[in-house]
């Protein structure tokens, strides 16, 4: 479990980082918190001639309010975001999802941007980004561009980032009053990747649900939006019905921890539970 040799680069400016990526193409890989990449290198499941470390790059570790969004820099540590009052006040769903990531030691090093760029379909943060219609800011040699989360997650560990781009920030929309959020996930043990997970946001006016979003993780090749279940909820369906609708649109695969049929069955349950919890919070 020793990685093969690589050249280590520690740029201090975004332009340097993207220039290195442009120079080395797919022979280079971005290193952020290293919580996924380093084990893959050690197991020799992946190898790269060049690692471009973002940890010393200026300007990637801010959490700030920008134009009705919360902008989280690429190398903001998950633990920092987890304990940030700004995050808790502006994007409660992110706050609620973060403690589910691994263990605190992992969150001390792992980054918000790294988790989203790694795009593991069983991870919490990609589902949060997708559910909240977050915007991913990508920096490349020619400047930055913005990518909607809906367009960002292409397949397992595959994103819309080009080889010479880094994820420089994520912008999460801030919801208004009357909102409620919940995260429900099933794991074999505390801190494991989810067998199935759901993130839910709702906004209510009186008894009416005026806004609903449901993101699923661990049940497909990418995080998924349960759009039909959202529509059902907005049309007056109850949480249990919405859960069933969400489950009817997925086809997760078997692995050694649970069958696809299991994941489908429990998705209806956790979506229901998450909606119930989110509604309770919205109405409180």
């Amino acid at each position: 479990m020793k990685p093969s040799s690589f050249n280590y680069h520690a740029p201090t400016r975004v332009e340097e980082a993207t220039a290195l990526l442009a120079e080395h193409g797919d022979g280079a890989k971005v290193l952020a918190g290293g919580q996924s990449l380093v084990p893959m290198l050690s197991l020799r499941l992946a190898s790269f001639e060049h690692l471009v470390d973002l940890n010393k790059v200026d300007g990637l570790s801010a959490i700030e309010r920008v134009n009705g969004h919360l902008r989280v820099g690429a190398i903001v540590r998950q633990a920092v975001a987890e304990h940030s009052a700004d995050v808790a006040a502006s994007v409660p769903l992110l706050s609620k999802a973060l403690p589910h990531i691994g263990h605190f030691q992992i969150r001390n090093r792992g980054t918000v941007g790294g988790s989203i760029a790694h795009a593991d379909p069983a991870s919490e943060l990609p589902a949060v980004a997708l559910a909240l219609d977050a915007t991913i800011e990508a920096a490349g040699p020619g400047g930055t561009r913005k990518i909607a989360a809906a367009d960002f997650f292409v397949s397992t560990w595959q994103t819309a980032l080009a080889d010479d781009e880094i994820l420089s920030a994520v912008e999460f929309p801030v919801w208004g009053p009357g909102s409620g959020f919940a995260v429900e996930e099933l794991t074999r043990r505390h801190g494991d990747f989810a067998l199935a997970g759901a993130v839910v946001g709702v906004q209510v006016s009186g008894d009416t649900v005026t806004k609903a979003t449901i993101g699923l993780f661990g049940v497909g090749p990418t995080p998924l939006r349960a759009s039909a279940a959202e529509a059902a909820l907005l049309s007056g369906a109850d949480a249990a019905e919405a859960g069933k609708v969400a489950a009817s649109h997925i086809s997760p695969v078997d692995d050694i921890h649970a069958s696809g049929a299991y994941r489908t069955q429990v998705t209806a349950v956790i979506v229901r539970r998450a909606i119930e919890a989110a509604l309770k919070e919205a109405r409180s």
Partner: peptide
Amino acid sequence: LGPSQLLTMMN
């Protein structure tokens, strides 16, 4: 007797 096995038996 993990969750997948128990739920299958209950089903």
